[in-house]
């Protein structure tokens, strides 16, 4: 039987008058859909004051404050040289995790994801657009943070390999944080996601080696802290940008494991409505 819709197969009524509403269905090419969705999400994030506070103001504020004032004893060397890699790690976390978790949680709550599910944009297309949006915001953050840090006297101590390893760390870190964001946004209520995402942001900011060196923590705690995604990303970036290290294998592996586990769980548990 036919439960609804669809008088079998015949062509539309012959008597139909031509008008702008004459059916002419069809999906746009996938790249055009992804580009449109990416542009919309990017504009929305850049217009949102709370999101900008988390992704731009807090990282830049911490960078300036801790570079100029000896709030924390960072040991020898230039303070900004120590801080800049940590601030980049914080920026990645703020965009890929905090901002994305909150935005996606509320999109689910407001039925935005449900409604998009009825458009020709596939779920894979939507996730591509969200990823592209995160990358665009991160590029903006990287440009601004690098500019401000350079103005504050940042001189990276890096080998040429850092041009490869630093973006690679950011990429794998972005995957790990995005997985964590979507895991929360796809299962928890929007308010719970909001509260938890902000809490985790602050905890990882404190424990992740962003502004407080991990050497300040008890020796017994340090191995665990570098297993946190923020700890691994900050440690890895600091190794390649401040200490001219080679390939930070351990940190890359830690981030990759986070990425695989969280994305795998998110894919299984994400509820679109």
């Amino acid at each position: 039987m036919t439960a609804a819709a669809a008088g079998v197969d015949g062509a539309p009524t012959a008597s139909a008058a031509e008008s702008e509403f004459t059916p002419a269905p069809g999906a746009a090419p996938l790249p055009r859909m992804i580009a449109a969705q990416t542009a919309m999400e990017t504009r929305t994030l850049l217009r949102n004051g709370e999101q900008l506070t988390v992704t731009m103001l807090i990282p830049l504020g911490l960078l300036a404050m801790f570079s100029l004032e000896p709030v924390v004893n960072l040991g020898g060397g230039s303070r900004v040289d120590f801080l800049a890699p940590g601030i980049i790690a914080l920026a990645v976390m703020s965009t890929a995790f905090t901002s994305q978790a909150i935005a996606t949680g509320f999109e689910r709550r407001y039925g935005v994801l449900k409604r998009l599910g009825a458009t020709p944009l596939s779920r894979a297309g939507l996730i591509s657009a969200k990823t592209a949006t995160v990358v665009i915001i991160e590029l903006l953050q990287a440009a601004i943070i690098t500019g401000v840090a350079t103005g504050l006297g940042w001189r990276p101590h890096a080998t040429a390999l850092a041009f490869l390893t630093a973006p690679l760390l950011v990429l794998v870190g972005t995957a790990a944080f995005s997985g964590l964001a979507l895991l929360m946004a796809g299962t928890l209520r929007a308010e719970a996601t909001l509260a938890l995402a902000n809490l985790i942001y602050i905890v990882l900011l404190g424990l992740g080696g962003v502004v407080f060196p991990l050497t300040k923590f008890p020796a017994a705690a340090r191995p665990f802290l570098t297993l946190l995604p923020t700890g691994a990303l900050a440690t890895g970036l600091r190794a390649v940008l401040a200490n001219a290290a080679g390939i930070p294998v351990r940190d890359l592996v830690v981030l990759a494991v986070w990425a695989v586990v969280t994305i795998g769980l998110a894919a299984r548990t994400f509820r679109w409505e």
């Binding site: 002419a24 269905p25 069809g26 999906a27 746009a28 969705q37 458009t119 020709p120």
Partner: peptide
């Protein structure tokens, strides 16, 4: 405008 970009015509 966004939704219009999802469709062919």
């Amino acid at each position: 405008r966004l939704l219009s970009r999802f469709h062919a015509h």
